[in-house]
Write a protein that binds this DNA or RNA. Sequence first.
DNA 1: CGGCATCCCCAGCGATACTG
DNA 2: CAGTATCGCTGGGGATGCCG
Lengths: 115, 115
Amino acid sequence: MRTYYCNLEVTLEIIGGKWKGLILYHLIKGPKRTSELKRLIPNITQKMLIQTLRELETSGLLHREMYKQVPPKVEYSTTELAQSLEPVLGALCNWGQNYAETSFAEDEYEILNVD
Amino acid sequence: MRTYYCNLEVTLEIIGGKWKGLILYHLIKGPKRTSELKRLIPNITQKMLIQTLRELETSGLLHREMYKQVPPKVEYSTTELAQSLEPVLGALCNWGQNYAETSFAEDEYEILNVD
DNA sequence: CGGCATCCCCAGCGATACTG
DNA sequence: CAGTATCGCTGGGGATGCCG
């Protein structure tokens, strides 16, 4: 029996951690192949990418579609459960942009959008 | 020069991690003393509580008010920057409640609200 | 009561090499 | 291209005890 002291703890257990939010953010915009995600999130290692995708799949947030061909092609997409996070993740993203603009020195950071 | 590949990475660096979101969530509802926060977040150790509060203060999200008296009294409150997270954290909280209700077996978890 | 300092463990993560 | 396997580190964080 797992005990939570706040509903937010549930959320953080499912989509918290170093990479889950970022992966969901990109996948919510549309299905992506493994290599596309790696390109969108350059700092993640392949190991962590695969591992995190597995966890999100287990939590019912992602769907994994495998095409039987050579070379292999795998595509990840979000479930309805994950889609409902779209406005929240969007808001968090905007908040980060605003935070950087107001709290970071202009010459101490950069945002490279790789879309 | 710190490089981000998505504005969401900024957000996660500031309010990500194991405890920051939870602490902000409680403090946004109103100023709290250290011991109150400890009671609201039973699983956090005092070390991590203090450490995380310091980091949030450094990031400009919290204000620390110290009353010179015996026994000591310290109160933490949110800055305007943190207040803007209220709707987002509230949404995440609701999402977690919904997730638990739909995806967890009823007899495998419990939510103890300590408000 | 609020906070700091130590010690120490372990799991999360990175690096690398390998497979179908 | 997608994924697995192994090794090894390191730092996040827990436990404990002390101080103003």
